[in-house]
């Protein structure tokens, strides 16, 4: 009898494995959580996109919850989300900091002129230093940063009204109150 019980081990293992595999279906395996969650934004010193003489440091995030949006004119998906970012900034009153990543200043300014500028402040990062320190692996990426300048969340991919309502907005409200 005891031995017969042992023969059930394979089927039990198979079922356990099946549950894990089932949970894995439909998840995006390329999705990565940021390594910076719960940590302050990396130290940086970057020129302003519009005004090359103004230098911004990591203290720009202190005092208010912000979204940090990583974008570039070379990135087609950034074009897709741009109108929604403009809507977010204008109608929802969200503070969005732009990080122009590995781009050309003239092209970026032209883009903002023609499509509208949703950014309260734009950082210019042609070498991608801050992008690298943030662990950016594909634009567009959007970070939720709380009022102490701590990274709380990262969204990889396009921000749509749905992503805003379901994911980003609750976070922004939570950290907005807390801070």
């Amino acid at each position: 009898m005891m031995r017969r019980v042992l023969l059930f081990i394979p089927v039990v293992l198979a079922v356990a494995l099946g549950i894990v595999l089932f949970a894995g279906i439909g998840k995006d395996p390329t999705h990565l959580e940021s390594a910076l969650i719960g940590k302050p934004v990396p130290v940086f010193e970057l020129a302003d996109l519009q005004d090359p003489d103004t230098i911004h440091r990591d203290d720009i995030f202190v005092g208010e919850v912000s979204l940090l949006n990583v974008w570039g004119t070379w990135c087609p998906a950034c074009r897709d989300e741009h109108d929604d970012l403009v809507w977010l900034a204008r109608d929802e009153g969200v503070r969005i900091v732009g990080l122009n990543y590995k781009d050309n200043r003239d092209l970026a300014l032209e883009w903002l002129d023609s499509l509208g500028n949703p950014y309260a402040l734009s950082l210019y990062d042609p070498q991608g230093r801050l992008g690298f320190d943030l662990g950016v692996y594909g634009a567009p990426e959007t970070y939720v940063i709380d009022a102490e300048g701590v990274v709380r969340f990262r969204h990889v991919g396009v921000v749509t009204p749905q992503v805003w309502q379901q994911t980003l907005q609750p976070l922004v409200e939570r950290y907005g109150k807390g801070g």
């Binding site: 017969r4 023969l7 059930f8 394979p10 089927v11 198979a14 079922v15 099946g18």
Partner: peptide
């Protein structure tokens, strides 16, 4: 699941 669980149960 059907194939493997049924065959392993048969085995058991």
């Amino acid at each position: 699941a059907i194939t493997i669980v049924s065959s392993l149960t048969l085995y058991a």
